[in-house]
Every structure is written in structure tokens, then in C-alpha cells.
Design a protein around this nucleic acid. Structure first.
Lengths: 185, 185, 185, 185
DNA sequence: CATTAATCGAGACGGTACGTCCAGTCTTTAA
DNA sequence: TTAAAGACTGGACGTACCGTCTCGATTAATG
């Protein structure tokens, strides 16, 4: 998370924090993620701008936090009988979790991270890395080496994000299946 | 390209167009691509804002045009004796063309395209698609089907862009080699 | 005046200027002069903030300009048969021109000038000095020396402003009469 | 003074009070009196904002208190052999007590009082009135009526403050001398 | 001697306004 | 018509302070 911390003095209002995150998500869906502004969030959440700036550095960080909090619980690795099955599960579960709104949000988060190192770091630490670690563990449990696993993940998740960001075609089950079969002979 | 056209009356000053592109690239390198503004370009290029708006819809489009004009000639497919060699050539040439400045620029263009459909279209039409077509042709010449080729490109270029955007690790020759060997047995 | 000037490009809208001054005076009367803000003026005048900032450096300068434009025509020296009569005329005319609203405005302008040199200069150049020059000329026409005239003006206008700023008592005709008789024997 | 009082419970820390006044004066000199803020004083004095608000209503009041406490002891009426001499003493002593820093402070206090009735009252009660009473007493002791004395004080102190606030010229001994001679024939 | 009321520091809170940047449009003069 | 110059409306920025409000910790007189 990006939220800053504090200790002495008056406690931070957690209701304000929640209101801000909720407002950020709402606006991201309503207006598109790149039209979310601090002033808009503040108005929607019934909170002062300063209260937001005290916790997050900019609007994209708020949206990132809200997005991560929302999506994190939705995805968990379902290990299969084989490495191929585990990969297939991960990809299809991921694809299903991404309704169009979340898909836009995710595309935008990655986009914003390209010009904001803090955001990039947050994204990597809170989204990519933990899922990658889980994936590597699952693959190692299937009997492959860690390097081999990294290569597999690069290939299939690379292709997945590629289609996510440069949308020349759909992400569907047959395509996922072909991907997995190609790299797990 | 994104540049709009015109015909009657005074001819458009092509020196102005070039000055604008040069200024856009300069500012993109100096300030980072996302801090390039129309006003900044206008001032740097010694040109009026209206002159820019007459040609491009927004600052990102200028940078995109300038970037594509700069990078396009740098990359051409070198076909090899086999599909694997062709892929390897394409990836290593690409990696070499991306000095850190251009790499940032490219990352940022992709990022910006995530929240600007026009930009996304321009990027797809002028950068991704032609290169993809070239790649497919090369693979078909190597005896594989078009669908098979599409899958190969998704996998290796997916992985490539994945590492480009989410930079947990370097893009180097051994890694490229491992990628290609994995998908071209 | 404090308004800045320009020449090439689009002409400055004089209707905007007038609307801003009118709004400034209105708000100064409604809320008290020190609660006039740029944002308030902009809203009241139906004008963008930038349009105001392009012409004036801050809210006090707008109010100053508006105040001077309003009050300047109201006061003109009426020369009398004697120096004493001229002074008395000047003071009573001044007192009558200051309805409570304008009196507050004047007090506030002087107050604000104490912590803003530009404002002080504008006040001196556009209000105090021209009136002082007129007064000196009238007194010289009455046969006194310039130095003598300066001393007279210091004394009677000093007393006048003193009572204006530190309001322990009223400014009325008998008091003015006593002042003048004291210094013009 | 403006300081509020209290009785039961923990005693107010007088060291805090002093620290606040000292900080207020320091900042008034360093930044100019109108840029003194409660937050600035609190930080400079190492004191919580609430501690200041418990005693004073706003920043100007703190500065006023600090200023009065500093300047009050510096000026005491020196009665002369004549009314003229007494006036001359008062004016020259006053002029001498006003080094440039204090002069700015005094100008600013008067300025601030123009848009803050409480401040105006405090200024009048603690600075102007006591000194005026002393002056009237001295003049009465010289054999003049109270009304006559009031007129004299209006004239000479009026002129004095006039030059203080609208600084077109210096306040020096010859000018003071001329003033006094003009009104005390 | 415990209670209790006031004070202290720290700092979060809802607000207002600031002055700036930039967007995209419009107007003016010159070429 | 296009170009440059620059004014226009407007949205949002991030900051500075305001005055108020919790907090938990002291500090003293009172019961």
C-alpha cells in the first residue's frame, strides 16, 4: 500500500480512508480511471482535500490502493494435478475476474505506473510479485526448477498482459489453452 | 501518423512541423515523456499553440508521432535460416535499439495509450501491426501456419513487453535465447 | 493605477475589467473590504481567475483600483477667498464624500498599504499626492510659501486621517473649524 | 493585554507565553509582521497551536501583545517647562524609540487594526489612550483647557502618524520643531 | 491521597483561498 | 488561409493556514 503512517496526536479517521477509496473506485468506473481527480474524490467522499493529501501523494495512488484492496481477495491460486493445469487455472481465473470495468482499471494502473516510479513499485510489490511467487511455488511443487518456472510465467503471463494492453484480440479460453499447451509439452 | 491534412490557402510551414517534433522529443527526454505539454512544445519550438493544435489533437500525439518517426527506421526484420533464428534476430535487434531514453519513451507511449483510445489506435496501426505482419510473414516463409505464428509472437513479444513494462529483471541475450528455445523446439 | 498593459495578440476585454472592478466594490461593501478574495471576485464578475491575475497582483490591488476609480471624481478642490476657507472646504468636502461604506474602504486601503509596498505606492501616487499638489497650489495662490503650505497640510490632514484611522471621536464641522482656526490665525 | 484568564486545574505555563511572544516578535521582524501565522509561531516557539488559541484569538493579537509589551516601557512623558517643550519632548522621544523594525511593526499594527475591531480596541486601550491621557494631563498642568489640549494633540500627533503611515517624507527634529511652533504660538 | 479539572504536546479534521499550470478556444495583426 | 502572439474560460493542482477537534500525558488544587 501507499498510505503513509503516523502515531502521536489524534488518530486518523478510518471512515475517511474507506470513504476515499470507495469514492475513488466509483469515479474510476463512472468517468474512466484517468479522469479521477483529488478534488473529485474529496467531493464525492465528503472529505477535505488535505485529508487525502495527508495519506496519498496523488490521485493515481489512491486509485491504485483502492484497486488493489478490491481485487486482491478475488484471486487465489488453484493448484491443479499438473503444472499445465495450474497455469491454465491461474489464467482463466484471472481472465474471469477481469470484468470490463476492472480490466480498464488494471490497464490504467499499469499505464500510470509507466510514468510514476512509486506507483510502479506499489504495483510490483502488491500485485505482480506476490502472485508471481505463488505461481513459482506451484510450479516447483510440480517438479520443475525455479528458472524453468520463471520462464514459463514470463511467457504465458507476458502474452496475457500483452493482449490486455494492446487489444488487437480477445482473451478467451481456447487461446489460453493454446498458450499453455505450447509451453508445457 | 496522426497529423491532420489541409489544402487551400497558405501552405503549412514544414519547418514548423519539424521544430515541433524536435521540441517534443527534446522535452520528452529532458522532463520525462509525461511532462511534455503543448505550451512547453510551443515555447521550445518557437511556434504558436494554434499551429500545433492545427496538426495534432494533444501533446501525447505529438510525442507519439515524433517517437515513431525516430524509431521506425531503426528496426527492420532480418530473416534467418529458421523461424527460431528470425525470432531471435527480431528480439535482439529490438533490445539493442532501445537505449534507456527510448526505452522510457516507449514505456510511456504504451502507458499513455492505456487511457487514450486515439493514441492506442495510432500505436497499434503504426508500430505494433506492421511489425507483427512482418513477423508473421517471416514465420510463414519458415513453413509454419499463420495461427501457429500468431501464438509464437504472442508468447515471445508478450514476454518481451512484460519485462519492458514491469521491470523486475533485465532483458538480455541469454534470456531471449531461452525464450525462443522454449517455444521453438 | 496598478493594471498591467499589453499590445500584440488579442485585445484585453474591457468589459471584463469593468465587471471585475464592479464585483470588487460590491463585495467590499457586502463582506467588508478584507474579506474580498480573488475567487469571490471572479465568481461574482463571471470571469476566470487567470483573467484577474493577468491584470492585478492580488485582491487588495483590485479593490484599490476600483476604489480610486470610484472616489477620484467625487472630490475636487473648491478654492475659497482665503487659505483658511480653502482648507475648510477641502476638509468638509472630504468628510461629506466619505459615507460609512467608503470610509471603511479608505481605512482598509490605508491599512492594507502598510504591509504591501506596491499598494502603498499606488495609494500615494493616485490618491495622496495629486490631492496634496492641488492643496499646495491653492495655498501658494493664497500668498503663503510652499514650505508653510506643506506644514499646514501635514497638520490638518494629519489630524483628519488620525481621526479616521483611530476612531475615538467623530469628524464633524465644528472640529474641522477648530482645526483650521488653530493653524490659520 | 488581550490574554484570557483561567483558575482551577493545571496552571498555564508562563514560559510558553513568553516563548510565544518572543517567537511572534522574531517572526514579525524576519518575515514582516503580516506574514506571521499561528502555525509559524507555534513551530518557532515549540508550542502547540491550542496553547496559543487558548490565550489569543488570532495571530495579529499575539503580535500586538508582544509589540505593546516591548515598546511600552520605552516611552514615558518627560514634562518640560512649557506646553511646547512637553510636546516637543514627547514627539522626539517617540521618533527616537522607533527604530526601523519597530516602525514597521507599528505601521502594521495600525494597518491590521483597520480590519479587526478587536485589534483596534486593544490598540486604542493599550497604546493610544494612555499616552493621550498623559499628554492631556501635561498640557492641563501647563495651564491650557482640556479641549484646547485635545486639539493640540490631534494636530501634532495626527501629523506624526500621517507621516508614519504615508511615508512621503522623513520624521526629523526640524520638522517636529516646526509643527510645535506652528500650534503653540 | 485519590480525584478531577485544566493544560500541554501533537497532529488529524473540514475548510477556504491561494497562486500556478495547462487545456483548448477565440481574436487580432501581419504576411 | 496560415502564422505568431496572446487573451479568454475553465479545471485541477498542491500548499498554506485557519480554527476546531481528539488524543494521551502532565500537573496541581480540591474533596
Amino acid at each position: 500500500m501507499i498510505v503513509k503512517a503516523a502515531s502521536r496526536g489524534r488518530k486518523r479517521s478510518s471512515s475517511a480512508t474507506h470513504a476515499v477509496c470507495a469514492a475513488a473506485l466509483l469515479l474510476a468506473r463512472q468517468l474512466g480511471p484517468n479522469r479521477v481527480t483529488i478534488e473529485g474524490i474529496a467531493a464525492e467522499a465528503g472529505v477535505a482535500k488535505t485529508t487525502i493529501y495527508r495519506r496519498w501523494p496523488n490521485a493515481a495512488a489512491v486509485v491504485m490502493d483502492a484497486f488493489l484492496a478490491e481485487i486482491e481477495p478475488l484471486i487465489a491460486y488453484r493448484r491443479g494435478h499438473s503444472v499445465a493445469e495450474t497455469l491454465r487455472n491461474a489464467l482463466t481465473d484471472f481472465a474471469r475476474a477481469l470484468d470490463p470495468g476492472r480490466r480498464d482499471l488494471l490497464r490504467h494502473m499499469i499505464g500510470a505506473a509507466q510514468s510514476d516510479p512509486d506507483l510502479a513499485r506499489a504495483f510490483w510489490d502488491n500485485w505482480i510479485r506476490p502472485r508471481r511467487e505463488e505461481g513459482l511455488a506451484a510450479i516447483e511443487a510440480g517438479g520443475l526448477s525455479r528458472d524453468e518456472g520463471a520462464l514459463l510465467l514470463d511467457l504465458v503471463f507476458g502474452a496475457f498482459y500483452y493482449r490486455l494492453l494492446i487489444p488487437y484480440a480477445e482473451i478467451d479460453d481456447p487461446w489460453i489453452d493454446a498458450l499453455v499447451r505450447k509451453v508445457c509439452p
